[in-house]
């Protein structure tokens, strides 16, 4: 009886995954192996599900060959991962002390602070990014403030630095919340024991608190890194033309070239590279549960 119920509990997430991840992914994969066509819809399906032999013969890998042949895609992939990686690192550096501080507060203050972290979500994401344009633009708030202080003006808007700034700002709650969840649950007596045994505060943190919070670090990093690698809105609004990211490449394939197969192939390639960290995280989580 007990076993049946746990099996049922496992089926539901499985169904969820099948319906909202596996099925759409198969569609995208199929699309990426199709030809473009001027019709409604704008591609010819290359796969006839009824005959498997013809299916294998009919696969059109030309799109993938192009992804390899043209440096643009590799460059975009590298710079997406670089930008997302830099932003994730900054998020950790900013988010960890925040989460740590919140977890150390008395419960009423803690709730107020968590609320404050979530509060920006009440304003539209797009409006918050537009606000950054007003701050960073040449005659914007930042340069007005710098001028008051007698400092030279900086031109940040439409640079990679602005993209990273926007990403760090937009994704901070996704880093703070999982870290906070882990740190808040931690048994404070472990650190006390370390201190009683003569460990200085930083060492107690580094050998006790931090290793125990690693699942939160991993969850926060993945939660930020994965969507940031494919982010489109922030680089489009804050970045310059030379800020090359995969989200933008997919947009060009999809809208400017009307090339759905190529857009799908880029998306599949991005997913394939993101799958590795996800699987690592899964294994680590499984270890923790055991």
């Amino acid at each position: 009886m007990r076993r049946d119920r746990s099996r049922l509990a496992a089926i539901l997430p499985g169904l969820w995954l099948a319906a909202f991840f596996a099925f759409p992914f198969v569609l995208v994969l199929k699309l990426s192996l199709s030809d473009t066509a001027l019709s409604v819809p704008p591609y010819t399906p290359q796969i006839d599900w009824s005959r498997l032999n013809a299916f294998i013969a009919g696969l059109d890998v030309e799109t993938y060959a192009r992804l390899v042949a043209d440096r643009l895609y590799l460059d975009a992939w590298v710079s997406s991962l670089r930008i997302a990686g830099t932003a994730t690192l900054l998020l950790l550096l900013i988010g960890y002390p925040m989460a740590y501080g919140i977890a150390r507060c008395a419960p009423p203050a803690r709730h107020a602070l968590v609320m404050a972290v979530v509060l920006p979500f009440w304003t539209s994401f797009l409006i918050r990014i537009y606000a950054w344009i007003a701050i960073l633009k040449p005659a914007g708030l930042l340069n007005a403030a710098l001028a008051k202080l007698g400092l030279p003006a900086v031109n940040l808007l439409n640079t990679e630095a602005a993209v990273i700034l926007g990403l760090v700002y937009a994704y901070l709650p996704f880093m703070v919340l999982p870290l906070y969840a882990v740190l808040e649950r931690q048994d404070g007596r472990l650190v006390e024991a370390a201190r009683d045994l003569g460990s200085p505060p930083f060492r107690a943190f580094w050998t006790v608190t931090f290793p125990l919070s690693l699942p939160g670090v991993a969850a926060g990093a993945l939660l930020c890194f994965i969507p940031m690698a494919g982010e489109f809105v922030v680089p489009d609004l804050l970045g310059g033309s030379e800020t090359l990211m995969l989200g933008r490449v997919i947009w060009t394939e999809f809208f400017a070239n009307r090339d759905w197969p190529a857009a799908s192939a880029v998306a599949v390639a991005l997913l394939a590279t993101l799958l590795a960290p996800i699987l690592l995280f899964e294994r680590q989580q499984a270890k923790v549960l055991r």
Binding site: S39, V40, P41, P42, F254, F255, R258
Partner: peptide
């Protein structure tokens, strides 16, 4: 526009 209309 074209992407939307051609999708139907």
């Amino acid at each position: 526009l074209e992407t939307k209309v051609l999708q139907g």
